[in-house]
Computed example of a mutant assay.
Amino acid sequence: MMQREAKAALLERVEKLVLPVTQELGLELVDIEYLQDGGYWYLRVYVEKEDEDISLDDCAKVSNRIDEDVDTLIEEKFFLEVSSPGVERPLKKESDYTRFTGQKARLILKHKMEDSRNWTGVIERYEDSIIYLDVEDKVLEIPYSEVKKANLVFEFEDF
């Protein structure tokens, strides 16, 4: 099992390789994961375009450009996957909260706030490192530093 520090250092090196490629292709790097699943290691790179859907071709371009370089960084045999983060995309950066203002999000906090670590609501605004989350008509002020994990919540439209 890979140590947490070693994994974090590896992800940082992978990010330094991937960022210039995504920027050159007009894409945004959303997240990178390196994990073991069913006995196999996976390096998952999530990319998106700000105002349009990402294509399979976009993902293939990133994969082809970084494939050999990431091979030199990782000793284990692994599978490289480049994809969209999906409709329930993770919120990783502070700028994500500004970008997705008005959208529904699920936040898991490091510590309980009002007897819960799990909150789902609409991002009302983000300022001074505080997420203003509208939860059932009350607005919670959640410090960005308290967020352990967060993602958008997709809701089906009523027809």
Rank of each mutant, 00 (worst) to 15 (best):
M2S: 09
Q3E: 15
Q3F: 12
A9F: 06
R13T: 05
V14K: 07
K16P: 04
V18A: 05
V18K: 01
P20Y: 05
T22M: 03
Q23Y: 05
E24T: 04
L25M: 11
G26A: 09
L27A: 04
E28K: 12
V30D: 05
Y34G: 02
D37L: 15
G38P: 02
G39E: 03
W41R: 10
R44K: 15
V47W: 05
E52I: 15
E52G: 04
D57Q: 15
C59N: 08
V62R: 08
D67R: 14
E68T: 14
V70Q: 04
D71I: 14
V82H: 07
S84M: 02
P85W: 01
V87C: 07
E88V: 13
L91P: 00
K92Y: 01
K93H: 10
E94T: 05
T98P: 00
R99G: 01
T101F: 03
K104A: 08
L109R: 09
K110R: 11
K110G: 06
M113T: 03
E114C: 01
D115Y: 06
V122I: 15
V122A: 04
D128L: 03
S129D: 06
I131W: 01
E136D: 14
V139E: 10
E141L: 09
E141R: 14
I142P: 01
Y144Q: 03
K148W: 12
K148A: 12
A150I: 15
E155T: 13
F156A: 11
D158I: 14
